[in-house]
Simulated assay, not measured.
Amino acid sequence: MSSPRITRNRGPYLLIVPTILVLIVAMGYPLGRQLILSFQEFGRAQQFGQPAEWVGLQNYQDLVTDRAMWTVVTRSLIFCAVCASVTMFIGTLFALLMKRVSTGPRLALQISLLLTWAMPVIAAMTAWQWLFDTRYGVINWTLKNLGFSSFENHNWLIEPLSFFSVAGVIVIWMSVPFVAFTTYAALTQVSEETLEASHLDGATALQRFRHITFPTIKPVLTIVMLLQVVWDLRVFAQIDFLQKVGGTVSQTHLMGTYIYTLGIGQSDYGSASALSMFVLVLTLALTFRYVRRLLAEDAS
Rank of each mutant, 00 (worst) to 15 (best):
V73H: 05
W54V: 13
R210A: 15
F236D: 05
M27N: 12
M125E: 04
G265F: 04
W70F: 15
I172M: 04
G265Y: 01
I212A: 04
R5P: 03
S198M: 10
H154I: 06
G91F: 00
Y260H: 11
S191W: 09
I223T: 15
R33M: 09
L114P: 00
L93I: 12
I36H: 07
A197V: 09
L161I: 14
L115I: 14
G147T: 09
R210C: 12
L93D: 01
I223F: 15
L57E: 08
F241K: 02
E53S: 08
V245R: 03
A203H: 01
T74V: 10
F39D: 04
L14K: 08
Q61D: 07
A81L: 08
A108G: 10
T103N: 15
L294K: 14
Y136F: 11
Y260E: 07
I223W: 08
S276F: 04
F48E: 05
L57T: 11
A272L: 04
V179K: 00
M1N: 13
F178I: 07
G168D: 01
M88I: 03
K144S: 11
R10G: 15
G56D: 06
A205R: 10
T116W: 06
A45I: 13
A95D: 05
T19Q: 13
H253V: 03
V72C: 05
M255K: 02
W54L: 11
T7G: 13
V64R: 12
L115N: 07
Y260F: 15
E53R: 07
Q238P: 02
S2H: 12
